[in-house]
Simulated assay, not measured.
Amino acid sequence: MSTETLIKVKEILAEQFSQEVEQSSGKVLIDFYAPWCAPCKMLAPVVEQIALEHEDIKVVKINADNSQELMAKFGIRGIPTLLLMNNGELMATKVGAASVSQVKTFVQQ
């Protein structure tokens, strides 16, 4: 496996949200995180594993510190927060660190 395929999670900016998420067909898992957030660091490898195991799901990360408008839009008050969207529609929200099995269950709903 090349190193290029190891990183499946794409970091996007708030300006790219519409194009990368809302206009995307199918499921998109969004990880709102911050570099200083310990639970976010614990969740990062879990999100990466989900991206590797679920080719059908697009996975993106958004730095919460730089995305206050998006945080407000989705009512996010704590991080890490995962959003699951399907065809641009919000399907579910999960707040806090989670195990691989918990996130798998979350994305399969």
Rank of each mutant, 00 (worst) to 15 (best):
E55M: 13
Q16M: 13
L29H: 12
G88S: 08
Q16E: 15
K10E: 13
I57D: 11
I7H: 03
A97W: 02
K27N: 14
S18T: 12
K94M: 14
E15R: 08
A92D: 11
N87D: 15
L29N: 12
K61E: 10
Q23A: 11
V21D: 07
S67Q: 09
D31H: 12
L70Q: 06
F74P: 08
S25C: 11
N86R: 13
A38T: 14
K94H: 14
M1N: 07
P35R: 05
K104R: 13
D65M: 15
T81K: 12
A97F: 06
Q108E: 10
A34Y: 15
S101F: 08
S25D: 12
A72Q: 15
S2M: 06
Q68I: 14
P35V: 02
T105L: 05
A64N: 07
V60I: 10
L13D: 10
N87W: 07
I76K: 09
E15F: 08
V47T: 08
S25T: 15
N86L: 04
V9H: 03
I7M: 01
I62A: 09
Q102E: 14
K73D: 03
L29S: 11
F106I: 05
V21P: 00
G96Y: 04
V47K: 09
D56G: 02
A44Y: 02
I30P: 08
V95P: 05
L52H: 04
A97K: 04
R77P: 00
K73W: 06
T81M: 10
N86A: 06
H54V: 10
E11H: 13
I62W: 02
C40Q: 02
V103Y: 05
L83G: 11
T3G: 00
H54I: 03
V59I: 04
I7F: 07
V100F: 13
M1C: 07
T3M: 12
F17E: 04
V100M: 09
I7Y: 00
S24P: 02
V103W: 07
